[in-house]
C-alpha cells in the first residue's frame, strides 16, 4: 500500500481471542515492539476466518495476511485450528497459483504465553512482505480512491 508516495506494507492479522490475541497483548505488556503496519482483527477462533476475508483484504490493498491461532491440540474450541490449517493450506496454494506469493500469507500458532513469539513473528513476516513489494496482483484498483 502506498502512503504519501512511499511503499509501506499493510499487514492484516486475524488473531483468535483465546491464544493469539492474548499473545499480542502480552507482547504489548512486555513492550516488545513490532511494526505498526500490523493491524489486528479479533476473531473468536482462527476457524472463524472465512477465506473471503483474506481475499477481501488483498482486494482492498493489504500486502500480507496472517492468521494466528492456538497451537494444534490447544484450541479453546477443541478443533477449530485444525479446520483453519486445512482451509488455509488450500486457499494459500490457490492464491500462490494465482500469483499471490505464498510469503504473503501465513498461519502461525501463538499461545497466550508467547508474547515474544508474536512480536518476532510479526517482525519477520512484515520484513518478508516488505521484501516482496506491493500487492498488485489482487488489489482492486476500483477500490482506490
Amino acid at each position: 500500500m502506498q502512503v504519501n508516495g512511499e511503499y509501506k506494507p499493510l499487514i492484516v492479522a486475524f488473531c483468535c481471542n483465546w491464544c493469539s490475541y492474548a499473545g499480542a497483548d502480552l507482547a504489548g505488556n512486555n513492550r516488545l515492539a513490532y511494526p505498526e503496519n500490523v493491524k489486528i482483527i479479533k476473531v473468536p477462533c482462527s476457524c472463524r476466518v472465512n477465506p473471503m476475508f483474506i481475499l477481501r483484504a488483498f482486494q482492498r490493498g493489504a500486502d500480507g495476511v496472517i492468521i494466528c491461532g492456538c497451537h494444534p491440540g490447544d484450541c479453546h474450541y477443541t478443533s477449530g485450528n485444525y479446520y483453519t490449517r486445512r482451509r488455509m493450506s488450500l486457499l494459500f496454494s490457490m492464491l500462490n497459483f494465482l500469483g499471490i506469493e505464498k510469503e504473503r500469507t501465513r498461519v502461525e500458532w501463538v499461545s497466550a504465553a508467547e508474547g515474544a513469539k508474536f512480536a518476532a513473528t510479526m517482525n519477520e513476516f512484515t520484513e518478508a512482505v516488505a521484501a516482496l513489494g506491493e500487492n498488485k496482483r489482487l488489489e482492486d484498483l476500483r477500490c482506490k480512491r
Partner: peptide
C-alpha cells in the same frame, strides 16, 4: 453467521483497516 462476529462486521473491519 455468528452474532457479534458477523461476516459483515469482520469485512467492515477489514475494509476500514485497508482503506
Amino acid at each position: 453467521d455468528l452474532k457479534g462476529f458477523a461476516t459483515k462486521q469482520i469485512i467492515a473491519e477489514v475494509d476500514a483497516i485497508c482503506k
